[in-house]
Simulated assay, not measured.
Amino acid sequence: MSTAHTIDVAARRLLVAAGEAPSVHNTQPWRFRVHDNDQMDLLADWDRWLPVSDPRGRSLHVSCGGALFNLRVAVRVAGRVAAVRMLPNPEVLATIRFDTWSPVPAEMRELYALIPYRRTSRAPFSERLIPAPVLSEMRTAASLERARLIFLDRRGADDMLDYAAIAQEQLTKDSEYLAELAAWTTGQGVPSHVHGPAAVGDMDPIRDFGRRTGSARFEPNPQLAVLTTATDEPLDWLRAGQALQRVLLVAAKHAVSASFLNQPLDLRDMRRHKDPHHRRGHPQMIMRLGYGPPVPRAPRRPTSESG
């Protein structure tokens, strides 16, 4: 086997892992530039940016951060240490250098094995509470990536569901937003088979993409969490994406499902409101967590399109 072919196979394996990351409306807005067998650059794919709902590029950066985390894990499982430099210049989101060879930690092998099984689930969850040790492990996962995962109590969750409903109502009055959403929920992005059912009753704890499949009654008390960062700049957004994916892989290890309720954050970004500083950090993701049935995956881009 030629050296060039060996490098190509190794790079493709890394790109497949990176491409399994979650992203806003499944846009998968990343590209990778392979320099040689020792370095790769992560770049934004601005053709897959959502300029109406994400004018700052915050969600794009969070999405790319998730892909970066998967890439780091894949490099580590390949026996190398990933030396990452984030935002080295205006064009590049991160440079990943494949450093010295080193034994692979069991934790990295476990996270890597979970990458294909992570799903965004818009199905109803059971009323079973997530055990405290699992919540603690998820908090630790976020902190390892310099973010914070805050689990909301019952009152906080009810308030957040109200905020999400109000934001959803405001968003659906914006024709440009609706056009952008439709472009990524018909044929590409989030296809109809992963939209989830329509909610029976007043409780609707999933995002409405306009085309539900059937109807169902959701859990009466959704378990919600907010992922925050200390500040609210592009570097924080990349860190939030890495923290999010690490949290989701830990959740997958314990069969915990997740979906997102980011309408309040989208509305904030669209109105260009600056998030006020507060001690618990700046919200970057709002998620619903719980135990749900297996769900199909959303389609992924071919590695030839991102690498």
Rank of each mutant, 00 (worst) to 15 (best):
I206Y: 04
L178F: 00
I206A: 01
K173N: 06
A198K: 05
D174R: 13
M203W: 01
P191S: 07
T172H: 08
D174V: 08
Q170M: 02
L171S: 05
S192C: 09
T172Q: 07
E180H: 06
K173C: 11
T185Q: 11
S192M: 10
S175K: 09
V194T: 12
Q188L: 14
E180V: 03
E169L: 12
Y177S: 02
L181R: 15
V200G: 05
H193R: 15
Y177K: 10
D174Q: 08
P197R: 13
E176M: 10
V194R: 03
T185N: 11
P197F: 02
E169Y: 07
D174I: 10
P205T: 01
G201D: 09
G201N: 02
V190H: 04
D202V: 12
G189D: 05
A183K: 10
H195E: 08
P197G: 03
M203V: 14
P205D: 02
A179S: 10
T172K: 13
P197V: 13
G187Q: 05
G189Y: 07
K173F: 11
Q168K: 01
K173W: 11
D202M: 12
A198N: 03
E169A: 15
S175P: 03
V200I: 15
L171K: 05
P205R: 03
E176T: 10
V194Q: 13
Q168C: 04
A199F: 02
T186S: 11
P205I: 09
T186D: 13
D174G: 09
S175F: 03
V194A: 09
A179C: 02
V190R: 01
E169N: 09
G187S: 12
G201M: 12
A179L: 09
G189E: 03
G201K: 07
Q170A: 14
H195F: 03
A199M: 12
P205L: 12
L181F: 08
A182P: 00
V190K: 02
Q188P: 08
E180S: 10
K173T: 08
L178P: 06
